[in-house]
Structure formats: C-alpha cells, structure tokens
C-alpha cells in the first residue's frame, strides 16, 4: 500500500441511459441511448483534494454516484486500492461501502425530515456496529469534529440552518470512518458567507484525518482554491485537467475558457460589460442553445 498512485482510479467509465421513446420504438429495440458519462479516466492520489468542475448536465453527478457505487457504470472499471470494485467479495464490498462516503447538496432532502440529528448519527454508527455508550461518545466527538453544538442533537433537520444541516451531512459520512469522501455540490445551496466555512471544514478534515476528498462543484473559484488537482468536465467527458493554477491561468480548452469568463467579477465585470456592450454576452449564448437544440 506504499504506492500512492492507483489509490482510486476510474478507467474509461461510460454510463448510458436509454431515452424514453414510444412503445413501438422500444419494442423494436431501437430506443436511442445517450451517454451521461462518456469515457472518463481519472487517477486520484491518496490524501488529495480532487476537484471536478462542470455545469449541470455535464455528467459530474452521475460520475459521483458511480464512484460511491450507488449506480453501476455501463462500461469501464472503478479500481480502489488496486482491486476492481465490481469484483469484490461480499465482505470486501461492505468495507468499500463504508470507506467511500458521500456528502450531498443540501436541498432539504439529504436528511430524513422525521429523524432527530442524534438518530441520524446513531443509525450511521449502528451500521458500523457501534452502539450503546461507545456510540454516545462517538456522536459527541463527531459533532465536535464538524463544529456543531451538542445541543443540536435534539433538533429535527428543519430546525437547523442550511450550513448546520450540511455539517450534519458531513458528520454522518464521517461516522462510517471513510477514506474517501465524495462531496457533490456541498456548498452551492449555501450563502456566500457560509460556503467558506464548509469548504474549510472539508479541507481541515483532509489535513487532519488524511481523508481523500473528491469535491464536485460548478464553482471554479471554490474548487481552484482548495484542490490539489482539478478536472473540468463537459458533455460527459473530461476536457481539461491539471493543477489549479495551470487550469485557471493557462486554460487550453475553449469550454474551460468560457467557464472562467463567466465567473462574476464585480466592478471589473461591470467595466467589461460597459466597455464591450451586450455583444460580449451574446457570444457566450451559444452552448445553451446547442443544449437546447439537442433536447429537441
């Protein structure tokens, strides 16, 4: 296990979905298929914070679900610690499940509305066969680890703020003692002022626990700041990858350039807009129209 490369690898992952069409077409077997993930290969080093950037519909969430094995890829291999996870034995499957956890976008559905926070964490620990007094102690230390007051254990999810709910989501994942944490848009539902708190928490966990983090976001600025490696995804493919500075300041792919150009930049953006007029924006209108045309 000394080798750090090959810790977590995706090899030529594809995920296809059949488009729903009429009954006749389905019977003929000719239902067209669309690839949400179209041949993605990635290698993630142990202890890295790996950033995956892309916009909605680019396949990044599908990829996240493949990484944690909520769905199986149509083709390709997920390799964890040198073993193909599709061929693990039952006992190893369980270990993999616990080792690779996920933090979801806080849309209000990431916590069961009928369960108090204590129960959410207790159930996670119970899945690891930690119960009773040991569980109580661990719940307390989990809450401390994510910076939440133990008072909140008695609350229901709707009685917490978005940032607090997201911390509970992280605590729930940590309860499984994971090695890899996939965070799918963990801050996009939060206020700008709170985003940093969650991102910093993830980055602290990376440093203190050696947790490998795969941070998925549409926000290039956030990802570039904390990640050691980033990859940009568009239409199911990785279009650019590298160190954050390199991607940010020397992008080679036109899509990456457009993504960078779209980030609001305050007064600078204002003068840019006023200087160039609406024409500058019209130039950027192309991709959505293409997507729109593709949806027809």
């Amino acid at each position: 296990m000394a080798k750090t490369e090959g810790f977590f690898e995706l090899q030529d992952i594809r995920k296809e979905y059949a488009l729903r069409r009429g009954l006749l077409q389905r019977l003929r077997g000719g239902a067209p298929r669309v690839a949400a993930v179209d041949g993605v290969s990635l290698s993630i080093e142990r202890g890295a914070i790996f950033g995956l950037v892309g916009e909605s519909g680019c396949g990044k969430s599908t990829l996240a679900q493949i990484i944690v094995r909520l769905i199986e890829p149509t083709a390709g291999k997920v390799v964890y610690r040198g073993a193909d996870v599709a061929r693990l034995k039952a006992e190893e499957q369980r270990t993999f499940r616990h080792a690779v956890q996920m933090v979801f976008q806080d849309t209000g559905s990431s916590l069961n509305p009928r369960k108090r926070i204590r129960r959410v964490l207790a159930e996670a620990l119970a899945a690891r066969s930690v119960t009773g007094a040991a569980a109580e102690g661990e719940i307390a230390s989990l809450m401390h680890q994510v910076g939440l007051d133990a008072m909140l254990l008695r609350r229901f999810p709707h009685e917490l703020s978005g940032g607090q709910r997201q911390r509970v989501g992280i605590a729930r994942a940590l309860a499984m003692k994971p090695e890899v944490l996939v965070a799918d848009e963990p801050v996009s539902a939060l206020d700008v002022s709170l985003q940093g708190q969650i991102i910093n928490l993830l980055s602290d966990l990376n440093r203190e626990l050696g947790l490998t983090i795969i941070l998925i976001s549409h926000d290039l600025a956030v990802v570039a700041r904390v990640c050691t490696q980033i990859a940009v995804m568009n239409a199911g493919k990785i279009v650019e990858r590298g160190a954050p500075r390199q991607v940010l300041f020397h992008p080679t792919d036109p899509y990456t350039r457009m993504l960078i150009a779209s980030v609001p930049r305050g007064l600078a953006g204002r003068s840019r807009r006023q200087g160039l007029g609406p024409a500058a924006v019209d130039g950027a209108a192309a991709p959505e129209d293409e997507r729109q045309a593709a949806a027809d």
Binding site: L70, Q101, M102, S110, A124, R172, M176
Partner: peptide, 13 residues
C-alpha cells in the same frame, strides 16, 4: 430517490 435514502444505502443498509 432522495439523498437521505442514498446515504442509508452508502451505510450498507
């Protein structure tokens, strides 16, 4: 289809 159910699956339940 909700995320809290996905989280339970990830716990191996």
């Amino acid at each position: 289809a909700s995320n809290y159910v996905a989280a339970r699956r990830l716990q191996g339940v």
